Amino acid sequence: MPVELNHTIVHARDNRESAAFLARILGLEVGAEWGPFVPVATSNGVTLDFATIPAESIVMQHYAFLVSDEEFDAAFARIEEAGLAYYADPHLKQPGEINHHHGGRGVYFLDPAGHGMEIITRPYDSHQRADGA
């Protein structure tokens, strides 16, 4: 069996708030609470299990989501409607912009726990795939 990422635990100040936030932006469903986790499943079978921990223990992590152009438009509209700050870069130095890396579009924003979230329409290695590399 090939190796696949199945799930990851995402630390949050409030697991329900963070799960609902991400699900709303990405147009996904919040799953049923399971023990200390509130899950959000992606279409490729990976689940993000949000777990509440003390705020001072949260270390910023980065989560990137590959979406279609239509899904990007919808998610970006929800980001703007929510009045969220967004950036073209992971260092948050280009506010109010999106990027166009690898012939696609991308944007960064923070979730309620301070994690860096990213949506992209082309994988970073797409230029290599087009060349057959």
Rank of each mutant, 00 (worst) to 15 (best):
V3R: 13
V3C: 08
E4V: 12
N6F: 03
T8W: 11
T8F: 13
T8A: 08
V10R: 02
V10E: 03
H11G: 02
H11D: 09
A12T: 05
D14H: 13
N15Q: 15
N15Y: 06
R16Y: 10
R16Q: 09
R16D: 02
A19F: 02
A19Q: 09
A19M: 10
A20K: 14
F21P: 01
L22Q: 10
A23R: 07
A23D: 02
A23W: 06
R24E: 14
I25D: 01
I25P: 01
L26H: 02
G27K: 06
E29W: 04
E29M: 06
V30Q: 00
G31F: 05
A32T: 14
A32M: 11
A32L: 13
E33G: 12
E33A: 15
E33R: 11
W34R: 14
W34E: 10
G35E: 10
G35C: 07
P36A: 11
F37E: 00
F37K: 00
F37Q: 04
V40Q: 02
T42V: 08
N44E: 05
G45Q: 11
T47I: 12
F50R: 12
F50T: 05
F50L: 11
F50G: 05
A51C: 14
A51T: 09
A51K: 15
T52Y: 13
T52D: 01
T52V: 07
T52E: 08
I53N: 01
A55M: 08
A55T: 02
E56V: 15
E56P: 13
S57W: 12
S57T: 09
I58P: 11
I58M: 06
Q61R: 14
H62Q: 12
H62S: 11
H62E: 14
Y63P: 01
Y63N: 07
A64D: 05
A64Y: 07
F65L: 03
V67I: 12
S68P: 04
D69T: 10
D73E: 14
A74Y: 00
A74H: 05
F76G: 04
E81M: 12
E81V: 05
E81I: 09
E81R: 15
G83Y: 13
L84W: 04
A85M: 13
Y86K: 02
Y86I: 02
Y87R: 09
A88N: 04
H91I: 03
H91P: 00
L92N: 07
L92D: 01
Q94D: 08
Q94R: 10
Q94F: 09
G96I: 12
G96L: 06
E97G: 03
I98D: 01
N99Y: 01
N99H: 08
G103M: 08
G104F: 08
G104H: 05
R105F: 06
R105K: 15
G106N: 04
Y108T: 03
F109L: 07
F109M: 10
A113Y: 02
G114D: 02
G114R: 03
H115D: 03
H115A: 07
M117L: 15
M117N: 02
M117W: 03
E118L: 03
E118M: 06
I119K: 02
I119E: 04
I119R: 00
T121F: 09
R122E: 11
P123T: 04
Y124P: 00
Y124K: 04
Y124R: 06
D125W: 15
S126I: 11
S126E: 10
H127K: 08
Q128C: 08
Q128V: 01
R129G: 00
R129I: 12
R129P: 00
A130G: 01
D131H: 13
G132P: 07
G132C: 09
A133V: 13
A133P: 00
A133M: 11
